[in-house]
Design a binder for these strands. Structure first.
Lengths: 344, 344
DNA sequence: TGAGCGCTTGAAACCGGTTACAAAGAAAGG
DNA sequence: CCTTTCTTTGTAACCGGTTTCAAGCGCTCA
């Protein structure tokens, strides 16, 4: 590999000048700058990132904290791939890379039942690698640990988890608005007895979807009896059992809004087992627009999240802080109602 | 951050000794070693990885090359999440991290229609960051570019693409064996007119699945008329149209083996449109065991790949080479036949 | 007793960049 | 013409580790 000293020697200038050409080009005279640039191009010179990180205490890396939840081995992020695509493209546009952090000590921690994402280990990791910031991806149940990251003072952006801290913010969909869209759609279709299957109470997007549901129902002048709100956990089985209990009510709903597509699929299964025709006897609306949504029978009406957009927004937010900008306000990306056969 | 010099001073030894305690503990006397270890623990000392990488020209990082294919924007890796889980856990067990590389120049390259994964840019990246090796994930159509990585001399492990080079190998499922399992299963169920919908001819796993199909058919004494082999591209629409053409044959097959679950789902759709009952009039078997497979109607019989296992195998292979070991032979992980309603 | 050996240890060079500081030269102002 | 200021440049320290090399020490053995 060519080093800065070789370039300097070949150009007859000092290493400081070469370094300046790449970092503060305006402080170097035009002639020297052009010579250095030409020689560097000819030799395909690339500064060594480790040396640079060592000297500046900054690396072009953003850490990704994504721990797979050992308590829920089957848990899968509903849109990890799209999220990564968005993150990666927005980061690379600014010359940053994404470092998937693995806590080496975590296996031991897990063995003793300690917290999933050990914040101390991760924060150490960021210091060791001079990471600019962290992107936190919710993996089902480590939200409490995320609060610790947020307090660490490092730039952090969480996805779908609300965190707060000196340099911490988050990105999620407009869950309130999305839920309201779902309700309005169902109301327009003539439904009046509308139930909801929510996500875990402690989960911010779940809570927001419930709030949006309630607000839109109130706006439409519809009552929400307590038995029409059933708590699930975003997973399919919980949607199925929640739907069973709704069907068993003396006055069952004619429509149900589920806080995730997974649960909506569970609801469809429960409806099928109960012999209910969808959408004629029961309309179902989900949330996420996972791939499966279009393929179940009947295809599922749902609120599509801007999955790659969330990744892009997260990348932008963390880069803003890395570059010394103000902590951006939480971002709520719009969702899009995709009407399919399950509600029409 | 505590540095090695602080530790040295506090312990009354030289920095060299402290460094040795962590890198060649046996060359340091027991007493000094224990003192250093204790002080380091008390101060929560972690060596700076950039400094270490600079001095040793080795970083604890493995690069991940995963370019999203701009020519097929909708393309998704069928099991990226599981693959990453496997990769990450196996790497972290050896103290390595995964760096998702983004080629900063790639946007420009793409604009002029150049290769997806620009090997030169990536190889530069590996040098700049002193990466130990690369893991290459097939993103649909950049297989040709992978050959360049394989030739670069860096340790590389490709997933589901066959590459060869001085320090390059690959990991995939036992596609030949898997296809044979599918055929035997169908033969046992009494089928004799068995067709196949293959993946792209140039794709190694696709070719292997076809080979396995042919071999098992021959073994069962069954003929494979040319019109019973239809080439698809792994995507759903191609499976659907391929199935349509098979149904239109004067003597249509009673069973079809599809080289991917996506295409198998397409085949199910085509069967439904043609009014064929699955599995009574047409049995369908897929490959991959994606999440969707269990959820379509009828649920799909398929060959489950050991998705996380492939990640683990890839990690092991690259680490072997990073540690100076011989290039491991390509790994073919066993698949498992999951029988569901589409073939029974 | 002294040469030879193995085991520990520290001094210092080195990895490849960035940057504080000083100096030299050019331009501007009185 | 001299002083001041600005621009450009180089020297050298520094970032935080690793590693070479030589030296010191305690032993063994002739």
């Amino acid at each position: 590999m060519t080093t800065i000293r070789e370039i300097a020697q070949l150009c007859g200038v000092s290493v400081a000048t070469v370094s300046r050409v790449f970092n503060q080009p305006l402080t170097v005279s035009k002639e020297k700058r052009e010579v250095v640039e030409r020689v560097a191009r000819e030799l395909d010179y690339r500064p060594n990132e480790s040396a640079r990180a060592l000297a500046t205490k900054r690396s072009g890396l953003i850490g990704l904290v994504w721990d797979t939840d050992h308590r829920r081995p089957g848990w899968r992020h509903p849109y990890l791939q799209e999220l990564l695509i968005g993150l990666k493209s927005a980061l690379s546009a600014h010359g940053f890379h994404l470092l998937m952090l693995a806590t080496s000590g975590s296996a031991a921690l897990r063995a003793v039942g300690a917290s999933l994402a050990d914040p101390v280990a991760y924060v150490n990791m960021t210091r060791r690698h001079s990471l600019g910031g962290l992107v936190l991806i919710d993996s089902g149940s480590d939200a409490p640990a995320f609060a610790a990251f947020a307090q660490s003072g490092l730039p952090c952006v969480a996805v779908d988890v609300d965190v707060d801290g000196p340099r911490a913010t988050y990105v999620t969909s407009d869950n309130v608005g999305g839920a309201a869209l779902a309700v309005r759609h169902l109301v327009e279709a003539g439904h009046r007895r509308i139930a909801t299957i929510t996500g875990p109470r402690a989960n911010r997007p779940a809570a927001d979807r419930l709030d949006g549901f309630r607000a839109a129902m109130a706006e439409a002048g519809l009552a929400v009896p307590p038995e029409y709100v059933v708590e699930g956990d975003f997973y399919r089985p919980s949607g199925q059992s929640a739907m069973r209990s709704l069907i068993a009510l003396p006055e069952p709903p004619t429509a149900v809004f589920c806080a995730s597509d997974e649960m909506a699929v569970g609801a469809l299964l429960a409806a099928r087992h109960a012999g209910l025709r969808v959408p004629d006897e029961l309309a179902v609306v989900g949330f996420d627009d996972i791939e499966l949504a279009a393929l179940v029978d009947p295809p599922l009406t749902t609120l599509a999240q801007d999955k790659a957009g969330i990744g892009v927004a997260a990348a932008r937010a963390v880069l803003t802080m890395v570059h010394g900008g103000e902590k951006p306000a939480p971002a709520f990306l719009p969702t899009r109602l995709v009407v399919r056969a399950s509600s029409r």
